[in-house]
């Protein structure tokens, strides 16, 4: 460490200062409170989904007086969440895979190939992260109408893939740039071409990065509403987000069944929760490696 970093710290005997301990006790409590709050919110959400509206407000943290498992089946079959779940699975799954498949070679080329314009092109991709969906949605709609891609899952997959690409390229460029040069040189000495180098050397090395991109794309698209709202017209193409919006409006117009609403929220939340619990190591570490490199 450079001396400047500790220049201000007076030398003292080696001991843990009492203020330090006090200082440590409070933040830890605050942190656990914050953690507790999130867990309570999660618990309330899941518990409320098997309660009646009356129970939800009478005893928000209590167990249900009657277990309304029917909320889930009503949301699933009557409110279109079954169709929504299948559509979301198809659309989000395809788009997330497409993002990885398209972004990986681009990120590899941008970070490892010595070609004119590589730098400018990378910059152009990064700028795309900042484009808000609102500015593109109208022209995009017109464009896709003319291509006949409105109200189709394919159209939605293409849009989702496109809007997710810049961040994916950005993140993966970081991972690719971090691969030691020696590994690449060894491959080229073996006479491996660019495709072989990418597939056999780089993709396995940045495996975690690919997974991170996949999960982050999937999470944000799974929860996307605005684009879907504009691009989807028929009920059989509704995504889960649209089903939830539709349910929210229905309970507002024909009776406040908050239990049903929370069941809808639960249907949307649980798959992501499971995905996250299974793969959280990759999301959390991958996010950091990608951003921090």
């Amino acid at each position: 460490m450079s001396t400047q970093n500790t220049a201000g710290a007076p030398r003292r005997a080696i001991r843990r200062s009492t203020p330090g301990r006090l200082f440590g006790w409070l933040p830890r409590t605050v942190i656990w409170l914050f953690v507790g709050f999130n867990l309570v919110v999660l618990a309330i959400t899941l518990l409320s989904s098997v309660k009646t509206t009356k129970d939800i407000f009478a005893a928000p943290l209590g167990l249900p007086t009657t277990w309304e498992w029917g909320n889930w089946s009503t949301a699933w079959s009557n409110s279109g969440f079954a169709v929504g779940a299948l559509n979301s699975l198809i659309v989000v799954g395809s788009a997330s895979i497409a993002v990885v498949v398209i972004a990986a070679p681009a990120a590899y080329a941008l970070s490892r190939m010595r070609v004119r314009w590589a730098k400018q092109l990378s910059t152009a991709f990064v700028l795309g992260i900042g484009i808000p969906p609102h500015i593109i949605i109208i022209p995009l709609f017109i464009e896709f109408s003319q291509l006949g891609l409105i109200n189709s899952k394919l159209g939605l997959i293409i849009v989702y893939t496109g809007v997710s690409l810049p961040f994916a390229v950005f993140l993966l460029t970081g991972f690719m740039a971090a691969v030691p040069k020696e590994i690449e040189e060894a491959a080229s000495l073996d006479g491996a071409g660019p495709i072989a180098t990418l597939v056999r050397i780089f993709l396995p090395t940045v495996r975690n990065g690919l997974l991170t991109v996949f999960i982050i794309t999937a999470v944000s698209l799974w929860n996307e509403v605005l684009i879907a709202l504009t691009f989807v017209q028929s009920n059989d193409n509704f995504t889960l987000g649209l089903s939830l919006m539709s349910l929210l409006s229905a309970i507002q117009y024909s009776g406040a069944d908050y239990g049903l609403l929370f069941a809808g929220v639960g249907i949307m939340l649980v798959p992501m929760l499971l995905l996250f619990i299974l793969l959280r190591r990759f999301v959390i570490e991958g996010m950091t490696l990608g951003v921090g490199k």
Binding site: A103, T161, V163, L165
Partner: peptide
């Protein structure tokens, strides 16, 4: 090779984000 690798991303990027 560079063009081949970046082309799909560039095309989609142009179609969905830059053009609009």
């Amino acid at each position: 090779w560079f063009i081949l690798f970046v082309l799909p991303a560039v095309l989609l990027y142009a179609l969905v984000l830059i053009g609009p």
